[in-house]
Design a protein around this nucleic acid. Structure first.
Length: 269
DNA sequence: ACATTGACCTGAGAGC
DNA sequence: TGCTCTCAGGTCAATG
């Protein structure tokens, strides 16, 4: 799940429910999700007695400023991570890997069923993005149509692989790339270097709209519009946009869903 | 330098 | 009901 819209929703959850409260406890259950140079002890020292003061997001990475520390807690959610803020009397959810207790009883918990994901401390979130060579965030206004075109130019392989590449654009993952291509009417295996201008425009415009709508609807697949792919990512169901059928395949090593009618490969050449 | 594949983990859910 | 097996929305190292 945790692609750009999900992480943005997590950011908002923290922003509205976990800032400006003193941290009274820090628990880490899975050391493997800590960055290499980080131990539970160091994380505890960095957070205990402090407050969280602001949040940022870049792609799928969430940064939480530690008040008075000049440092940021960095969270990445892998495939299964979630964030919840709990009031004092609620139990920790299953697979909680990391949680903060706050004065007053609230709790910020990060879960990850598969223990994939990362927790780190960084001094500078832009610096981190630079080290990782993360591309721009597609929900950023700076990614206009021309920027988008130049990000994709000179690349080979499928359009799906290019859009999922975090060095091209940071934030899109398997599900939302399928959604964008579905709505733009472009086949996921279309070679990125062969996309015509019309297709590039359609993908760019659709990307902005899909991400914005997804965030507004809480990144909840059930709440997405009826004509979207997301609520019906299943082999063999009817396409909600034409008389085609949703097909499942492998593209770039990932399960991929597309409509066999309005996303035919030749449509994008 | 760039693209693709397989491994990394664990557990939910399908299939028997 | 209970067992086994497949598969998962991300990323990186190894390979082409």
């Amino acid at each position: 799940m945790p692609e750009l819209p999900d992480v943005e929703v997590y950011r908002q959850v923290i922003e509205s429910g976990a800032l400006d409260r003193t941290v009274t406890g820090v628990e880490v259950d899975a050391d493997r999700i800590l960055d290499e140079d980080l131990t539970a002890e160091r994380l505890r020292n960095a957070l205990q007695g402090r407050t969280l003061s602001s949040t940022r997001r870049r792609g799928k990475h969430l940064f939480i400023e530690i008040g008075g520390e000049d440092r940021w807690l960095r969270l990445h959610f892998g495939m299964t991570g979630r964030v919840v803020v709990l009031s004092g009397d609620e139990e920790l959810p299953a697979h909680t890997r990391f949680h903060l207790n706050f004065e007053g009883g609230e709790c910020l918990a990060v879960t990850s069923q598969r223990r994939l994901g990362e927790i780190g401390l960084v001094e500078d979130h832009d610096g981190f993005a630079g080290e990782r060579e993360l591309g721009p965030d597609p929900s950023d206004d700076g990614v206009d149509r021309n920027t988008f075109r130049s990000l994709l130019s000179g690349r080979r392989g499928s359009v799906k692989a290019a859009l999922m590449n975090q060095k091209v654009l940071a934030g899109l993952g398997n599900v939302y790339v399928d959604e964008i291509l579905f709505q733009a009417g472009v086949h996921p295996e279309a070679p990125v270097e062969e996309l015509d201008d019309r297709s590039l425009k359609a993908i760019h415009r659709t990307m902005g709209r899909v991400l914005q709508t997804a965030v507004r609807r809480g990144a909840d697949p059930e709440r997405m519009p009826d004509r979207w792919l997301l609520p019906r990512r299943r082999e063999g169901v009817d396409c909600p946009r034409c008389d085609g059928t949703i097909r499942k395949s492998q593209v770039s090593g990932r399960s991929t869903y597309h409509c066999d009618s309005h996303q035919e490969e030749r449509n994008s050449r």
